[in-house]
Design a protein around this nucleic acid. Structure first.
Length: 591
RNA sequence: GGCCCCGUCGUCUAGCCUGGUCUAGGACACGUCCCUUUCAAGGACGUAACACGGGUUCGAAUCCCGUCGGGGUCACCA
């Protein structure tokens, strides 16, 4: 069977981090190309950086986006060269926990680059000039401000603004251009209608006269998005354009441009959008919104500091903070500072947010694949097949199975996927992957924990962790100084002061056991505690809880045996003694 | 507002193309119970949807039309 070549591309603009929606689009593009290759055809996945907006683009963003894609295991066959370490299991043939090796992704085997549009300007100019020469495009001299005024006027009359080229005769336009007058270049919109063939949506018809003479080259000499995509998709041999549905209404422009330039029209497939649970668009602004909301609540609390004091604590100027609070800016730095100060987690929007929050790339890939696509298969026991890896997506992906409706991003389900992946790991894998994560996101904590401590706690902690970050929270008690943590007053009251005999008495009894149990390991410690409870004729909880609070300050911790073992005998005794003292001396206050 | 897309449990979806096997299946979330040294995890069970109205047909979640609802887009941003 002859399989037609499938060349796809993901073309982010480097104006920020990689959004989860973009990651999904990239995943689909990747999968479509891989699928073709798996079917014995020629499939390539290309990355192109659309940096024609000089003001907003940055190399740093471009690097970050590539990094995030690589982390997800979405590797590109052609595009900017990225060198880094791939150690995640979504990359076939890579072992988790093994020493990751430097890997190079990208390159230009066909010589169709460069893959940064800013470096392709001469190419665009060639085609712009061709269009002008054939009368399909023309210079325009209005400034953006002037156009904006006209547009405002039109919308004021409840009409859609359309550029009117009849204002200036063509000959005059060309003369002024040759005279060196600054200008943009506009495309002569076709008279007829345009039909877009979409592999997801079907045929979409646009009536004649819907399109106006849009700009194809800005006054700064850079092409607009519409022009650059069309030229690049042609010259890079892209056969299938997968992109978010918000681009659907751009497609007739691209089709018209292709016709005018004598280019092929690639296959199009517009994938549905991803929204927040509340139906709003998922945006990095959500982080600012969340920070603002929490901040206002914190300000409203009795005894709260004033805004000016907060600003000082946050290391911001009051003006800066005020502007943020009124919504005049959505500064991520301010939002982050507020979040750190208030100890709250901002919503994850971008791939790097999920990474920092301790999500696994394979869980994200799995979840994202299911947002708008579904393999339509059943497991042997008749359930819908929805747990799979990237390789599976690459093998089974098809455009026909992309849904048409927009989807809401269900964080709870992602979390469940992540949690299940953690549950399916071996303890060794869990430790190795936590170490890899913590090196980047919890370096201090990681440095203080020994491998022995980690391997002691991992089996008990794993079912309690939905993310890698959760393990950090579980482990924190183990690295605080014995006299350096506070007691949860509610826990102290409930567990140590009440009861008959009181928790404090039980704690004192348990001290002996901690002092002499040998070996000092989870199983033996557990047995010792059980024996004590039996001797005293009380439930396990009456012994375990006082100990737990004494050791961690909290009513919640890993199972007691592990909690003791991780601390070690000396530390455990010190904590018990400190707790006994603190609770016996009421004036000290437990908190 | 113009144009365009969409509409199955709270959410993601299977089923729709090729009407009957759908008293609509699964997953997440939620609830109840079991287990239990805390918190989890685990096990069992359960609540919950074809937006509405017209057609077509012996028969419609599935085909057609309309209404309503949601979304996108209308930049010298991409």
């Amino acid at each position: 069977m002859v399989v037609a070549p499938v060349y796809t591309r993901f073309a982010p603009s480097p104006t920020g981090h990689l959004h989860v929606g973009g990651a999904r689009t990239a995943l689909f593009c990747w999968a479509l190309a891989r699928r073709a290759r798996g079917d014995g055809g020629d499939g390539r996945f290309i990355i192109r950086i659309e940096d024609t907006d000089q003001a907003r683009s940055s190399d740093e963003s471009a690097r970050g986006i590539l990094e995030d894609l690589a982390w997800l295991g979405i590797v590109w066959d052609e595009g900017p060269v990225w060198v880094g370490r791939l150690s995640e299991p979504t990359i076939p043939g890579t072992d988790v926990g093994s020493e990751s090796r430097p890997t190079q992704i990208g390159g230009d085997p066909r010589g169709v680059g460069p893959f940064f549009q800013a470096r392709r300007v001469p190419l665009y100019n060639k085609y712009v000039e061709r269009l002008i020469a054939s009368g399909r495009a023309y210079p325009a001299f209005e400034t953006p401000r002037e156009i904006e005024a006209l547009r405002k006027e039109a919308t004021g009359r409840k009409q859609t603004y359309r550029y009117d080229r009849s204002g200036v005769p063509m000959e005059e336009r060309l003369r002024r251009m040759r005279a060196g007058e600054p200008h943009a270049v506009r495309f002569v919109a076709p008279e007829g209608g345009v039909t877009v063939r979409d592999l997801v949506l079907g045929d979409v018809r646009y009536a004649p006269g819907e399109m106006d003479d849009f700009v194809i080259r800005k006054a700064d000499g850079f092409p607009t998005y519409h022009f650059a995509v069309v030229v690049d998709d042609e010259t890079m041999g892209v056969t299938h354009v997968l992109r978010a549905q918000e681009h659907l209404n751009n497609t007739p422009r691209h089709v018209a441009l292709q016709a005018a330039l004598g280019f092929r029209t690639p296959e199009y497939a517009h994938v549905p959008l991803i929204f927040n649970q509340d139906g709003t668009k998922m945006s990095k602004r959500d982080k600012a919104k969340a920070a603002r909301k929490s901040f206002r609540e914190a300000l409203g609390k009795p005894g709260a500091l004033g805004t000016a004091d907060f600003a000082r604590d946050l290391g911001l100027t009051p003006d800066n903070l005020a502007a943020f609070l009124t919504g005049d800016n959505d500064s991520l730095e301010v939002a982050g500072a507020i979040a750190r100060h208030l100890g709250l987690a901002l919503p994850e929007i971008e791939v790097c947010d999920f990474r920092a929050a301790g999500y696994l790339p394979e869980a994200i890939v799995n979840f994202l694949a299911l947002l708008g696509w579904n393999p339509g298969m059943k497991t042997p026991d008749g359930r819908d097949l929805e747990k799979f890896d990237a390789a599976f997506v690459a093998e089974h992906f098809s455009l026909e199975r992309i849904g048409t409706g927009n989807a809401k991003f269900d964080r709870a389900k992602l979390l469940a996927f992540n949690s299940e992946r953690i549950g399916a790991m071996t303890d060794a894998e869990f430790v190795a992957r936590w170490r890899a994560w913590a090196a980047d996101f919890e370096p201090d904590l990681a440095a203080k924990l020994t491998d022995r401590q980690l391997s002691l706690i991992a089996p008990a902690a794993r079912p309690r962790c939905k993310t890698l970050r959760d393990l950090a929270a579980v482990l924190r008690f183990a690295v605080t100084p014995d006299d350096g943590f506070e007691y949860d007053p509610k826990a102290v009251d409930k567990v140590l002061r009440r009861g008959e005999p009181s928790g404090l008495v039980m704690l004192q009894a348990a001290r002996d056991l901690v002092a002499c149990t040998d070996p000092f390991e989870p199983a033996s410690l557990n047995q010792a505690v059980e024996r004590l409870a039996a001797e005293k004729g009380v439930g396990m909880g009456q012994v375990a809880q006082p100990l737990r609070v004494a050791l961690t300050g909290q009513a919640v911790s890993p199972p007691l045996g592990e909690t003791l073992a991780v601390l070690g005998r000396e530390s455990a005794l010190a904590r018990i003694d400190r707790c006994v003292r603190a609770v016996s001396a009421p004036s000290t206050g437990a908190a």
